[in-house]
Structures are given as C-alpha cells and as structure tokens.
Amino acid sequence: MRRSTVLLRSRQRGLSIIEVLVSLVIGLVVVGAVLLSYVTSGQTNKLQAAYAQMNEDAQVGLLILSRDLQLAGYAQPTSLDAVTFQFGRTYSGSAVFGCDTGFVSASTTGNVACAAAGASPAIEVVYEGDITNTVEHSSGRPSDCLGAALTQQTVGLTDFYVTYNRYYVATSTLGRPELHCASKLGNTGGALVDNVENMKIWYGEANPIDKRQIVRYVSAANVLDPTFGHVVSVRVCLMMRSAEPVLSAEDPATYLDCDSVSQTSADRFARRAYFTTTALRNKMTF
C-alpha cells in the first residue's frame, strides 16, 4: 500500500516556469488583439460619426442658402406696360450682391460694403418677403433670416416688405466657425449652422443675348455688372469641419478644398467640401 502511494506521488508534478511563461504570452497576445480591435473599432465609429454630422450640417446650410437664392429677385407685379408688356414691380433692385472678402458690417442698415481683405466671402440675397416665403412674425409681418419683423414699404397703393438676408462665416466666442446671417434691419448677426469653416461663392453670368445661357462662373470681384444684374445662377461651397479632432495618426489627413486643391489637416480635424448650384428663377427670362 505504501509502495503504490509513493509511485502515485512520483508521477504528479506542477507546471514548469517555461510552460507558465508560454501561457502568459499566448494570453497577452489574445488580450492585445481584442484591445486593438476594440480601439480600432471605436476610432472608426468616431470618424464615421464626425463625417455623418458634417454631412447633416452641410445639407442644412446648403438648403438654407439654396432656398433663399431661389427667391432672390422675387417681387409682386404692380402694373403692366402696354408697349413693352413688362410688369412694374414693387422691388426692382439687385437680387444678389457679393463680396469675396466679406462685408464691412453685415448688419448695417444701409447698403452693405465689401471689406478690404481677410474675411471669408459673403453674399446678400434680396427679395420681397411675405408670410408664405418667410416665417410669419408674431406681429403678422414677414421676417428676415433671424426671425425679425420686416419694415413695411409702399409703392402707390401697394404695401410690401423687402428681405435683405446677408450670409457670411464668423467665429463664435468659443472659437468655433459658423455660418451666420444678418439683415439690413441692423440686427446683430446670428449663427445658423455650426462648424462651417469657410464659404466660397461663384456667380453665373448670363449671355447678354440669351438671358438663360450661363457663359461663365466667376468670383464676386470678377462680375462684370457691379449691380450683379446679369447673374442668373449662384454656386456655393461650404467647407465643413468636424466638431472635434477625430483623425488619428493612421487616418488620411488630406482633403480637397473648395477649389479642389489638396490640403493637409495639421490639427486632426476632419474636413470636407460640399457644393450646390442654384438658378435665380426670378432672374431667368422665359
């Protein structure tokens, strides 16, 4: 009995130090692979969420601009010339006006002026406002892009309201770039869309003979008519930026700007350019 017990004990042994180390290494490799997969998946989800947010913000910004541009130059007819068969209208001024260097003051109550240099391009969109093409103010009057009631004007026996919406890019107090709007009413500009880093605008000028044929797209400084009277289309680019730095060392840091020039993001913010082209329907001759 004692002999069998001794033999049984002699056959029992623990793990050697080499076996323990091999087991630890295998375990660490497995755990490391799981952690790497988790971190990579988290970074991918974070980047995708940033681009999804940029897509949504860009769509909102371009929709606001496109909607206003479609109304540019609109005014109700007040009379008909029996010789030329042309309608007289409540408002017959410029439908749009732009500055490549931004406005001196977007909220000035007079005519807007271009800044000397340095700012992002800006555009003024003008049309007759009513309670169907603007948000109705609590006073019952039409409103501008900030929701302020428009001032009544009168031509003959016709009362009307003119909207002067001025769009530009500015930086918030938190250092975040935003698409802003101000108006001729003197209201301080307000933010419409967050994380719009830059805006670029091209104006489509029509052929003097065929007013529906666009012959070129140019910046505001190169528009031939200082009143922008031959502009019948506007192309807008919004350069969007992610809300926070989301690019890792492994992510591509290059992007195309509004001029389709490759740029490099040195601050880890993701960027993407979004475009839209809008015909000024009230400036087209049919």
Rank of each mutant, 00 (worst) to 15 (best):
P121H: 02
V218C: 09
S120P: 01
I17F: 11
L179A: 00
T278N: 07
R212M: 10
G42D: 15
A279M: 13
V196K: 06
S37D: 11
V96S: 03
G27I: 00
T254I: 08
R67T: 08
L62Y: 09
G129A: 12
M1K: 13
Y38G: 00
L224Q: 15
P177N: 09
R141S: 13
G61C: 01
V261M: 06
S262A: 07
N195I: 11
I64V: 13
V125F: 02
K184Q: 14
A115R: 05
H180T: 15
E205H: 11
G129Y: 03
G98R: 01
L146V: 04
N133Y: 02
V135T: 14
N198Y: 10
V83C: 03
D267E: 07
E19M: 03
G189T: 06
D130Q: 10
A191F: 09
T154S: 10
T227Q: 07
M199C: 06
L150R: 05
L224E: 15
S219I: 08
S94G: 04
D68G: 02
N222F: 12
V39D: 02
D100G: 05
E250K: 15
L65M: 12
T78A: 00
G102N: 02
D267V: 06
R141A: 14
G110D: 08
V223E: 07
P245K: 13
W202P: 00
V223I: 05
T278D: 04
V60H: 00
A72N: 06
Q152P: 05
M240L: 06
A117L: 08
K46R: 15
S262T: 14
G175F: 07
A52W: 00
K283N: 10
L192C: 12
K283G: 06
F286V: 12
M240P: 03
S94E: 08
Y74G: 09
T188E: 08
V135W: 06
T84W: 00
V162H: 11
A182F: 12
V125K: 03
T158G: 01
V169I: 10
D130V: 11
A119M: 10
D267M: 09
R235K: 15
F286N: 12
S120F: 00
V60R: 07
G186P: 06
G73T: 01
G32C: 10
A220C: 01
W202F: 12
S183D: 05
R141V: 14
R271T: 00
T277Y: 05
M284Q: 13
E19N: 09
N282I: 04
G175W: 11
H180Q: 15
L185T: 10
V126W: 03
R13V: 06
S10G: 09
A33W: 11
A206P: 08
N133D: 02
S41D: 06
L35R: 01
E197K: 12
R235F: 02
F103S: 02
V96E: 01
M54I: 05
V104N: 11
I131E: 05
A33R: 12
L174Y: 13
P177T: 08
